[in-house]
């Protein structure tokens, strides 16, 4: 980005003058920082600490037992499976949609953008329910599916569908502004130098958005593993078969197995923390590349 000359001129002015014009008194600054930190502590760190405290209150052995319980293991496996299917699907879709929206002009573009946002505005319970209305045995398709022995609702495919629906916008929403900001200049250059469309996408577009893409994938993954509402409606709650981790936490809690519930919850929290650490580590390691990619 080329800086406005008048701004650059401003930088040469005496420091003191600048600070007086743009910053508050130290007391105000510290108060604001303190409020921010307090908020963070009360609403984020405290609950997180409580989860781990409750989980480990019964001792490490009880914790290990809760997590290695066959139903808990099945829930963990299922949650990972759901994420392993729905994240790649949304990765492909998100990339394709963002590319189309950001780099091309076509009729119905704003409609497409609205549709991408739909899962954000719809309650997750509805997201689960629509698939029951579509594929349940009372639906039009239901009898045909039953005759052919295809189980969608109250089985893994239904949970995958609901999860994909709910996590649908994450990657596309992350990429669209980034791609729009980058414009089509580099792609035009590549094509004018004789690169094919596919090659342009792989060698120019994709490398430019890889950090945004990674961030989108991490967000999408976190939500895919943590989704409760939509999955709850369509899962059927069969222990060891269609119970994901968030559902298993609820079941354990309702069975007075509080420390086991918190043990599984802490595992979910750990997965989320791991995601965050991974993201921060990558950002730190490749800080220069990220600035370069963003600073076009």
């Amino acid at each position: 980005m080329v800086l406005d000359p008048s701004l650059q001129a401003g930088r040469d002015r005496p420091r003191k003058h600048l600070r007086a014009a743009t910053t508050e008194a130290p007391a105000v600054r510290w108060t604001l920082i303190a409020i921010g930190l307090l908020f963070l502590a009360v609403f984020l760190l405290l609950p997180l600490a409580a989860v781990f405290y409750e989980a480990l209150r019964g001792g490490v052995a009880a914790y290990a037992e809760a997590i290695t319980d066959p139903d808990a293991m099945a829930a963990i496996r299922l949650t990972l499976l759901i994420a392993a299917i729905s994240v790649p699907c949304n990765l492909v879709f998100g990339l394709a949609a963002a590319w189309a929206v950001a780099k091309f002009e076509f009729k119905g573009k704003s409609l497409l953008v609205t549709l991408i946002d739909l899962p954000f505005s719809v309650s997750p319970v509805i997201s689960g329910l629509v698939y029951i209305l579509l594929f349940g045995s009372q639906s039009l398709l239901g009898p045909w599916l039953a005759r052919h022995g295809i189980g969608i609702v109250f089985a893994v495919p239904g949970i995958v569908l609901a999860t994909i629906f709910v996590t649908f916008p994450f990657i596309a929403r992350e990429l669209i502004p980034l791609m729009q900001e980058q414009g089509t200049g580099e792609e035009e250059a590549a094509i004018s130098l004789g690169a094919s469309g596919w090659k342009t996408f792989l060698l120019v577009t994709l490398p430019n958005v890889k950090w945004g893409l990674l961030y989108g994938v991490l967000l999408c993954n976190a939500r895919a593993m943590g989704e409760f509402g939509a999955v709850s409606v369509i899962s059927g709650h069969i222990r060891g078969v269609t119970n994901t981790m968030p559902l298993h936490v609820e079941i354990l809690y309702n069975e007075y197995a509080f420390s086991a519930a918190f043990a599984v919850a802490s595992l979910l929290a750990l997965l989320a923390l791991l995601t965050l650490v991974l993201k921060t580590a990558l950002e730190w390691r490749f800080a220069d590349n990220i600035v370069a990619a963003r600073g076009h």
Binding site: I132, F135, G136, S137, Q138, G142, A146, G151, V153, F154, G236
Partner: peptide, 8 residues
Amino acid sequence: RAVIDGLD
């Protein structure tokens, strides 16, 4: 309701 909707 779930059994009506196809829970097996």
